[in-house]
Design a binder for these strands. Structure first.
Length: 454
RNA sequence: GGUGGGUUGGCGGAGAGGUUACGCACCGGAUUGCAAAUCCGUGAAGACCGGUUCGAUUCCGGUACCCACCUCCA
């Protein structure tokens, strides 16, 4: 059995992963709020935790891993989007979920075992809130229900902050019905046009944090193996999840292992709309950057380090994948991935190390192992390969160039060959002349319009 | 102010207390009508200051700079 180690932010160190039940590994990752296209920053955890999913399936068996990633389909941002567009909320969330699937599929991410929608679990949320009130951890006030953070002494442990620190420096919402400024909302009232459900506290809707506690408990149990998400969610979202779940279930932990990925930056800065460096996965795909290339770039950097999205990385990733795709075309993968690749991934998801190991396989000429090992990180999959094969038909040009070349070899006058080569190169066509003939392929700057001129 | 992350060769980016990371780029060679691709090879590092050690880029402490979170952004 391969030994997997993971950096557990709950205890702030790397440790061996010991499943609660090796026949049923349970993983939860916080999913998107569905009001708009996923941006590139959303894609990083999806791809990183997809590799975790693949690794766990490889080690423990495909049917031994349950991976849950939710859709938050009730949220004030969705309400705001509905108000400004005049569209029904359900339309917006349905459409956005469809986009999300399209975009993440394009990145080669496997669909999780379950993708629960928050609105399907309102009953479980209400039950959990009632339970928290009954146990004295929450209180109702003016149509709201609040979690009383002072009742949970370990509040703040995950993120390493004390309640007093938080209050001192934070801009927290002070509301008259709160017993402590840090108390957070479990349930809040809805007015006429806002989505709402009947509850013991009146017509209302759940707070954000309770969703994940309710859905993870329903689908994975009170205590499960791994909870994953972005480091920006560590506080307050994950802190609040822990408070809710542990107090409701009386458990020592919510999840044994907490994994947090670092943030993605663009040219050295955080991606934000105000800086103008904000873009979605769909934007990149529409620019012609293949999903597989995006995936490779995201895997070039270890998940616990901030990563920078740059054009240079895209170029490098595309060149490498073209090379590997060429090597593996028509090759049957070996029965199992290379030990070096498994070892890298098992060591805290070292995807950069795994890629280095793939380079070694390519260099050593072990192409079947390259293909089998790449599958473990979701690369060189047949489903993702259209971008390489799907180029324009250049056979006519190739034949023409080859004919010129044969003639030139006899006449020793290569001027006509060189002239055509220059035009093809200008149109972004890559030329390979081998002993047996000419191969043409569309390069990075390929232009069909320029090709027409030839 | 509090909390966390980062600083490795021209660029990207890992592991390991002592032995080549790897990729891209560059340079040299092979090959080529010339190229491209491919193959072979060379060079190049560890922010700064101290400490531990026979030996540290790797462990410990400090300094500087960068980034993020503390606002229902992954």
């Amino acid at each position: 059995m391969v030994e997997i180690s993971l950096t557990n932010t709950r205890i702030r160190k790397k440790e061996r992963f010991d499943p609660i039940d090796p026949k049923n590994i349970r993983v939860y990752a916080c999913g998107p709020t569905v009001y708009d296209r996923a941006h590139l920053g959303n894609a990083r955890p999806v791809v990183v935790f997809d590799v975790l999913f693949r690794l766990l399936r490889h080690v423990y068996g495909e049917d031994a891993v349950t991976y849950v990633r939710n859709f938050t389909d009730v949220d004030d941002k969705i309400n705001a989007r509905a108000a400004e567009t005049g569209r029904p909320i359900r339309d917006i969330t349905e459409e956005t979920i469809g986009w999300y699937h399209d975009d993440m599929d394009a990145l080669g991410a496997l669909r999780p075992t379950h993708e629960p929608r928050a609105t399907d679990y309102i009953a479980q949320m209400i039950a959990m809130i009632e339970d928290l009130i009954a146990k004295g951890f929450a209180y109702a006030a003016e149509g709201h229900v609040l979690f009383e953070v002072r009742k949970f002494p370990e509040y703040g442990r995950l993120s390493g902050r004390s309640l007093d620190d938080m209050i001192a420096g934070a801009r927290v919402e002070v509301a008259p019905y709160k017993r402590d400024p840090m108390d957070f909302v479990l349930w809040k009232p809805s007015s006429g046009d806002q989505p709402g459900w009947d509850s013991p506290w009146g017509h209302g809707r759940p707070g954000w944090h309770i969703e994940c506690s309710a859905m993870s408990a329903e689908l994975l149990g009170d205590v499960f193996d791994i909870h994953a998400g972005g480091i920006d969610l560590q506080f307050p979202h994950h802190e609040n999840e822990i408070a809710q779940s542990r107090c409701a279930h009386g458990s020592e932990v919510m999840a044994n292992v907490w994994l947090h990925n670092e943030m993605l930056q663009v040219e050295g800065k955080k991606m934000s709309k105000s800086l103008g460096n904000f873009f979605t996965v769909r934007d990149l795909l529409d620019q012609g950057i293949p999903g597989e290339v995006i995936r490779y770039v995201l895997l070039m950097t270890h998940y616990r380090k901030p990563m920078d999205w740059t054009a240079e990385k895209v170029r490098e990733a595309e060149a490498t994948l073209r090379k590997w795709r060429g090597l593996t075309e028509g090759i049957e993968p070996s029965a199992s991935p290379a030990p070096a690749v498994i070892a890298a991934l098992a060591d805290d998801l070292n995807t950069a190390g795994a890629i280095a190991a793939l380079h070694d396989l390519a260099k050593d000429g072990d192409i079947p192992a390259l293909k089998a090992s790449a599958a473990l990180v979701g690369l060189l999959d047949d489903r993702l390969g259209d971008w390489v094969a799907g180029g324009p038909d250049l056979a006519g040009f190739a034949a023409q160039l080859d004919a010129l070349r044969i003639a030139a070899k006899a006449s020793k006058d290569f001027s006509a060959v060189d002239a055509m080569k220059q035009k093809l190169t200008a149109a972004g066509v890559e030329i390979r002349m081998t002993a047996t003939g000419v191969e043409l392929s569309a390069g990075p700057g390929f232009s069909a319009a320029e090709l027409e001129q030839i």
